[in-house]
Amino acid sequence: MSDIKQIKNLKDFSTSVERFQGGHRLCPGCSHSIIVREMLNATDDNICVSTATGCLEVCTAIYPYTSWDLSWIHIGFENAAAAISGTEAMYKALQKKGRPHSDKPTKFVAFGGDGGTYDIGFQSLSGAVERGHDFIYVCLDNEGYMNTGGQRSSSTPIGGATTTSPAGKVSYGEKRLKKDMVQIMAAHGCEFVAQVAPSKWKDLVKKTQRAYQASGPVYINAVSPCPTEWKFAPEKSMEICDLAVDSCVFPLYQIEDGHKVTVTYKPKVKKTVEEYCAAQGRFKHLFRPEFSHVIEDWQKRVDATWEYLLKREEAGI
């Protein structure tokens, strides 16, 4: 077990040796790289990263350049978890055999977008977690296939306009509810599952460090506002992130040992779903009178989920 990196405040944190370099081709204002930097900077141990096909992958390893100052692998869209499970197995085997490649402890992290996590990589993730590999799976959740022009995924929220669930004369956009991956992964019995937002860096770093200390699989769902496809100005990424959290559309909480819920951030003043939607072009059509019920229904669901989480936390079971 490695030592936990001491990060008392942002000044401490800013002394981190960066392992994710600039010069990548992610869009200006993309939240992905903010999440990645915060997570990688939360430890000084070696890290091996696998990344599912997606924005993060295609923009950070465009030959002849890599942005990764750590070992990194991309195989396919659907297998980031399987890939890192193999690397982790090799690490364990070489440790047992007494011929490791490095004396330093090594952490294993898989990054996938919601396409690579909720959809095409779901089986691979479920399998790797069930097998108990010691790794962190991080979903950079921007609620759609943004790398290929903003198509819907099973993470797209109801009412969201994407290029395959567009709003139109008779349609309010996406018709299905967003899949609840945090609960699904908790049901796998993970020692630790959490939802994070990059704008709440301290909460994110604390959860990531908890994840690094776990001895088995951890799932982290990170909200990743996408200026390009959520349709807001690039400088607003962290503001949108705060809105997602303060409206409780993306509640910050964690589940330990498959059941123990802790809500790690409670907004002093809860923002509304309407405020969250108003800040993004992808929900613009919901402000047409005929579609106003979508936001109303969404608000009811958000309130119910928030109440449920608070009750779960209070019950402590």
């Binding site: 942002l10 000044k11 944190f13 800013s14 600039g22 992905h32 915060e38 990059p198 704008s199």
Partner: peptide, 12 residues
């Protein structure tokens, strides 16, 4: 020197 700009910069 709060370091907000440092932590939230997507391009290091």
């Amino acid at each position: 020197h709060c370091q907000f700009c440092w932590v939230y910069c997507p391009d290091t």
